[in-house]
């Protein structure tokens, strides 16, 4: 304790950051308890709980519109839940002040579906953006860092281009370089594989795994591309109708006895989720009285 105060006085290291560093890191980087969230009258999460382990690639899967992206926004505290708690690194983010929240977000990287590069800045400036905002590093060091991050995603040669000159896969990789610029504790990927050609999809699949292991970070992957996801995920959560319906390693889920999980994981066209939208009987519709 005394040592901490001395550190604080002499080196200007903020007390809370020391405390954060000293604190024994919990096994879970994100813990969600009793989360409920609804948008208008539509219930998106209904008393859902899940833990995201540290140092692993965790996939969150589910049918379209089940609230996977919403979950990432909740973890990033861009929206707040109706009830329940979300703790990131042991802190309940629903109770943080705005200032603490912006601090906390430096520990999170997020890769948006569209990449979300700033269109008026070059690739180099995009990756440099978080560094310039949050550090006082000299320009030469920023340059080294930016080139290192770009090297990690294989786009060091493209640092002079503008975002409009990049292909979809490339802009996602640049966004990834930007997300890891501040060396976050974990990265959230929002549908990173959607709309990619097989080659760039392969590149991103490999990058997610590689970055997770090389940088010793944790990854949260939201996707509904089963094959790519299970090839790199350590853990999978299946979400449907606002609840966690399945959890475990990819293999466990593949062999699950639950018919819904089986249908989703194996991509069967019919099962608990029917092929047909609920309707009156087919023959009634064709031969019966028309009501419209």
């Amino acid at each position: 304790m005394f040592l901490l105060i001395i550190l604080h006085l002499f080196y200007g290291v903020s007390y809370s950051s020391i405390k954060r560093g000293v604190k024994i890191l919990s096994a879970n980087i994100v813990e969600i308890r009793g989360l409920s969230f609804s948008r208008g009258s539509k219930v998106i999460f209904d008393n859902a709980s899940l833990d995201i382990p540290r140092g692993k690639v965790t996939a969150i899967m589910g049918p379209s519109g089940c609230g996977k992206t919403t979950l990432l926004r909740l973890i990033g505290a861009q929206i707040s839940p109706d009830t329940g708690s979300i703790s990131v690194q042991g802190k309940d983010i629903t109770k943080l002040s705005n200032k603490e929240l912006f601090r906390m977000r430096r520990d999170m990287g997020m890769l948006f579906q569209s990449g979300a590069l700033f269109t008026d800045l070059s690739v180099y400036e995009n990756v440099a953006f978080p560094l310039r905002e949050h550090t006082d590093l000299p320009e030469s060091m920023i340059r080294d860092l930016v080139l290192m991050k770009l090297q990690a995603v294989g786009l060091r040669g493209a640092h002079t281009l503008m975002p409009s000159q990049l292909s979809g896969g490339m802009s996602r990789r640049v966004a990834l370089a930007r997300a890891i610029a501040l060396d976050p504790a974990f990265i959230m990927y929002d549908e990173p594989f959607t709309g990619q050609d097989p080659i760039s999809m392969g590149v991103i699949v490999q990058l997610v795994r590689l970055l997770n292991d090389a940088l010793k970070i944790s990854s949260i992957l939201v996707s509904h591309d089963i094959h790519e996801t299970i090839s790199i995920a350590d853990n999978v959560f299946l979400i449907a109708n606002g609840k966690v319906v399945g959890a475990g390693s990819p293999e466990e889920l593949m062999d699950s006895a639950d018919p819904w999980v089986r249908q989703f994981m194996q991509g069967l066209p019919d099962g608990p989720v029917p092929f047909h939208y609920p309707s009156q009987s087919y023959s009634d519709d064709l031969w019966g009285n028309v009501e419209c």
Binding site: R73, R105, R106, Q113, A116, L117, F118, T119
Partner: peptide, 14 residues
Amino acid sequence: TTEQLSSMEMMGVD
């Protein structure tokens, strides 16, 4: 629309 504002927010910039 292109999530640039959201991503800025996630980078801790208001």
